[in-house]
């Protein structure tokens, strides 16, 4: 039993990070139909910038805020410089643009910072907390709380604010949104900055546990993408559930079967889910209009 709890804790922690990255995918996808493979780089940037801000003498909370803001600005830059000029390009071209952006960001980070592994101090100490026969790191609670906070915040934003509703309207019907006077360019800028900031937050939160370096982005992007697809692309609830499920699957496989094949289990389950539900767990069933 304690063993199971232990795997559960670590699964939920990793899953919360996947869920945050998947939320980033979802927001940009809803605003623009683009699947942004540079999403993982935002998480990497969040961690790396925070690390270097701290080593430059900044207190940790300030460093975290700086990392999130700077990454948010980089997200805006990505949208303005690479996505907006390519409006209307085919899906595969957009995939390649975002992968190109990911490689570029990775290369730039390696050049500006370095190739080393870096660690961030835990927010509230490293003393494990005993819980139901297992232990959990305080930092894990931070990660989980961060994911919950972002999810609630986004939910309020999308349902209670005018701007949020404008973004939702755009994702439902771009043309109609334009007709009622919503500025699509502005919505996309907002989506990219929001996704980048959420990604950076995920990176800052997880770095004390998993460490970070310039090349951690692509793996996070793949997992976040998989989680978003598992939940059903474009559905925030799906991103959250998909992320947690993916994290739990990995932790259980690593614990009970083989740590080498933890990624395999996740992808096998995704293949099976897509086989029975081609739109993911929460995806809308679409009917061809002809």
């Amino acid at each position: 039993m304690p063993e199971l709890m232990q795997f559960l804790f670590s699964g939920v922690t990793v899953g919360a990070v996947y869920a945050l990255v998947a939320l980033g995918f979802t927001i940009i996808y809803n605003a623009s139909d683009v699947v942004n493979f540079a999403q993982g780089e935002f998480a990497m940037l969040g961690g790396m910038i925070a690390v270097f801000a701290v080593s430059a003498g900044m207190p940790l909370p300030l460093a975290a805020v700086v990392a999130i803001i700077v990454t948010g600005l980089i997200g805006i830059g990505l949208n303005k410089l690479a996505i907006e000029p390519a409006r209307g390009a085919p899906v595969v071209s957009l995939i390649i643009i975002t992968i190109g952006a990911a490689i570029f960001i990775k290369g730039a980070t390696k050049l500006i910072f370095d190739k080393q592994l870096h660690r961030l101090p835990a927010f509230s100490g490293d003393t494990p907390i005993q819980l139901m026969g297992a232990t959990i790191l305080p930092q894990s609670l931070w990660v989980i709380a961060g994911a919950i906070g972002v999810f609630i915040g986004l939910w309020l934003f999308f349902t209670r604010t005018l701007i949020g509703r404008a973004v939702l309207a755009t994702s439902n019907n771009r043309l109609a949104a334009q007709l009622v006077g919503i500025n699509i360019k502005w919505v996309m800028t907002l989506a990219f900055s929001l996704s980048a900031a959420i990604g950076a937050l995920a990176g800052v939160l997880i770095t004390p546990i998993t460490l970070t370096s310039y090349d951690v982005g692509i793996a996070l992007a793949l997992k976040g993408f998989a989680a978003a697809m598992l939940g059903g692309m474009g559905n925030p609830k799906g991103a959250l559930v998909g992320g947690i499920v993916l994290g739990l699957l990995e932790a259980m496989t690593a614990g009970y079967i083989s740590s080498q094949y933890k990624d395999a289990a996740a992808f096998i389950v995704i293949l099976m889910v897509l086989f029975f539900m081609p739109q993911g767990l929460f995806g809308l069933k679409s009917t061809d209009r002809v």
């Binding site: 643009i97 960001i105 290369g107």
Partner: peptide, 8 residues
């Protein structure tokens, strides 16, 4: 890497 990403 930067040049490669930029070309893409």
């Amino acid at each position: 890497m930067m040049v490669l990403g930029l070309v893409m």
